[in-house]
Amino acid sequence: MVSEPTFHRYVAMGDSFTEGVGDPDKSRPNGLRGWADRVAEVLATRTDDFGYANLAVRGRLLKPVIAEQLEPALKLSPDLVTIYAGGNDILRPKVDLDLLGELYDAAVGRLAVCGARVVVFTGFDLGHAPVFGKLRGRVAVYNEIVREIADNHGATVVDYWRFREFRDERYWDSDRLHMATPGHKQMAIHVLDTLGVPHDLKKPRLPKALPPSKKEKRDADLAWAKEFAMPWVQRRMNGTSSGDSVKPKRPSLEPI
């Protein structure tokens, strides 16, 4: 019989996906909750000495994630680390996926050597997405690199690529890039299930889906382009990031 895992020191690394963007909560640091907080809340019920740190910062590319978060993570002596990075790189006009893989492999290797259970994620299948669908091939290559890295270091893979329920737009925030609260709830379930940790989280209840009229869809597309797409392009042109003034919301191990 396989024993159920118990973790005492959980460190989350990455970008907006792990910071919790799209799942607002004014009572939380950075005003965000997110799937990692939800996972930590469950893990905390399994031991009296649980600590949780979240070093993720929105907008970060893979190289800065490693440069800024790897050493602080190692200093916390985690027994569980989740890391997702590379999604922002994939969105750039040009990306060297092989170089990303080398950097990622070295980082995961260092985390694994410290004795932590390391969890990595594949990227979401963008095949159905009207704007980002052209990047599907990039994501597929990135995912194969992630799976090889996991094989190399005995890491656990949360296979986001295969989570078909996320094709439902009700799991997504209005920016069409980040998961909304239902998405973060569902991701927490997937992470805990992949780890083999018992929980009583329930699949989120989604609002009733009503197909939009052509005018509603056109208006929504125009609003999205003005509110999200154009500012994103402007930041790329200026060399700035949405996370330039953002600090990690939980830089040290603390109870949750």
Rank of each mutant, 00 (worst) to 15 (best):
L80D: 09
G59S: 12
I66S: 04
L206S: 04
R218I: 10
A188G: 02
R9T: 05
P72S: 03
K247R: 15
H8D: 06
T82D: 05
P130R: 01
A12C: 12
G86Y: 08
A220H: 06
D159C: 05
D159G: 09
T156Q: 11
V65E: 04
A56D: 00
M237T: 11
W35S: 00
S242K: 13
C114Q: 15
V42G: 05
A36I: 04
E19V: 08
R117P: 00
R136H: 12
A225R: 13
R60V: 03
E41F: 00
D193S: 13
L192H: 01
A225Q: 13
G31D: 09
G86T: 07
E41R: 07
E216S: 12
V119G: 08
V197Q: 07
L126F: 13
R205D: 15
P248T: 11
R92T: 15
D23L: 02
L76V: 03
P64E: 08
P248N: 08
A112P: 06
E227A: 14
A106P: 03
E71P: 03
A140Q: 14
D89H: 10
V246P: 07
G20T: 01
H128L: 06
V157D: 09
L195W: 02
D125G: 03
D193I: 01
R60S: 14
T181Q: 08
D89V: 11
P72V: 02
D96T: 07
R110C: 06
L61T: 12
V246L: 12
T122R: 08
D151E: 14
L70K: 03
D151P: 01
L74I: 03
K215C: 03
L97W: 10
D25V: 04
V39L: 00
V57I: 15
T47I: 04
S16Y: 01
W232N: 13
P211V: 07
A188D: 00
R58F: 05
C114K: 06
K202S: 13
L253G: 06
D168V: 01
P29V: 10
A107T: 06
P64L: 07
G101E: 01
P251G: 07
G20R: 00
F166E: 00
L201R: 15
V57F: 12
R38M: 04
S16A: 14
D175Y: 13
D79W: 10
R60I: 01
R28M: 15
V119F: 09
A223Y: 02
S245G: 03
V141M: 12
P29N: 12
L43C: 07
D96H: 02
R136N: 10
R136S: 11
E254Q: 15
G137C: 12
S3K: 14
A67G: 05
R236E: 13
L80Y: 02
G34N: 00
K134C: 02
H184A: 00
W232V: 06
R9S: 09
I145P: 02
N88W: 05
W35L: 00
D175C: 09
G239A: 06
P93K: 07
F166W: 13
P231H: 09
D23Y: 00
E68W: 04
G243L: 11
D151M: 10
A129W: 09
R28C: 12
E254R: 14
V65Y: 02
H178N: 11
L177F: 13
R110P: 05
P24W: 09
D15Y: 00
A67S: 14
M1Q: 14
H178F: 09
